[in-house]
Computed example of a mutant assay.
Amino acid sequence: MRRDAAKSAPTLIQLTAESADDAALDEIDAVASAAFDVPQFSAREELRRPWTRCWVAREERRAFAFLIAWHVADELHVLNVATCPTARRRGLATALMRRSLEYAQEQRVRLVLLEVRRSNRAAIRLYRKLGFTAMGVRPRYYSDNGEDAVEMVLTFDPATGAVQPGRDEIRIEV
């Protein structure tokens, strides 16, 4: 039996400003720092916004990944999905994305939007597997190196909540 297989499945927790304790917020900031080399935001500040939604993947009471999104009107905009480098390739980002999409369906969200680095092929493959399509490019979107962002969208049928098939508006390599 592989050593990873013996580990327990991650627990997915939705955090709110009221439910988040200092330890959980510190863990999210630590994951962001490890994943991006520099913190992109403060979890405390982000959770103060009433439209922020945050899910954390924990294993053995420690956060290893998180997803932060904004829910505004009938849209969910995924701002950040991050996994601690030591916990990658365990399906944590996939589990968080699936949970955020379940939330979107429960809330009758019409569109789920996100931006992803053009070079992040693994993330683009994940988003495609979940039904996202490429709708545009934001030139020089990332300030750290001027890399382009690919804009991706997933559309739900407002009546049924089913994922609507889409097709790429731009060509991207994966």
Rank of each mutant, 00 (worst) to 15 (best):
M1V: 13
M1A: 15
R3P: 13
A5R: 12
A6Y: 11
K7N: 05
S8W: 09
P10F: 00
L12F: 04
L12K: 08
L12H: 06
A17H: 14
A17M: 15
S19W: 05
D21E: 07
D21C: 07
A23L: 12
L25G: 00
E27G: 00
E27T: 04
A30C: 04
V31I: 09
A32I: 11
A34V: 06
D37P: 03
V38M: 04
F41K: 10
A43K: 09
A43M: 07
R44F: 11
R44E: 05
E45F: 09
L47T: 12
R48Y: 05
R49C: 13
R49W: 06
P50M: 11
P50D: 14
R53A: 03
W55A: 01
V56C: 03
V56S: 04
V56N: 03
V56F: 01
A57W: 00
A57Y: 00
R58E: 12
E59Y: 01
E60T: 08
A65E: 01
L67A: 07
A69I: 09
V72R: 03
V72N: 06
V72S: 00
D74W: 07
D74G: 10
E75W: 01
H77I: 09
V81N: 02
A82D: 05
T83D: 07
P85Q: 03
P85T: 13
T86C: 07
A87R: 00
R90Q: 10
G91N: 10
L92N: 05
L92C: 08
L92Y: 06
T94Y: 07
T94W: 08
T94G: 15
A95P: 11
L96K: 08
R98D: 14
R99L: 10
S100M: 07
L101W: 10
E102F: 03
A104E: 00
E106P: 12
E106Q: 15
V109Y: 06
V112D: 04
L113C: 11
L114E: 06
E115W: 00
V116C: 10
N120T: 07
A122P: 14
A122L: 15
A123N: 01
I124C: 10
I124R: 15
R125C: 05
R125D: 09
L126V: 08
L130F: 09
F132N: 01
A134Y: 05
V137L: 06
P139V: 07
R140K: 15
R140H: 13
Y141K: 03
Y142F: 01
D144H: 14
N145P: 02
G146D: 14
E147C: 00
D148F: 03
V150L: 00
E151G: 09
M152T: 01
M152I: 05
V153K: 09
V153H: 02
V153W: 11
T155E: 12
T155S: 10
F156T: 03
F156A: 10
F156Q: 04
D157G: 08
D157T: 01
P158Q: 06
A159Q: 13
A159C: 08
T160F: 11
G161Y: 01
V163P: 04
Q164I: 13
Q164V: 15
G166Y: 12
G166N: 09
G166S: 14
R167I: 14
I170K: 05
V174F: 09
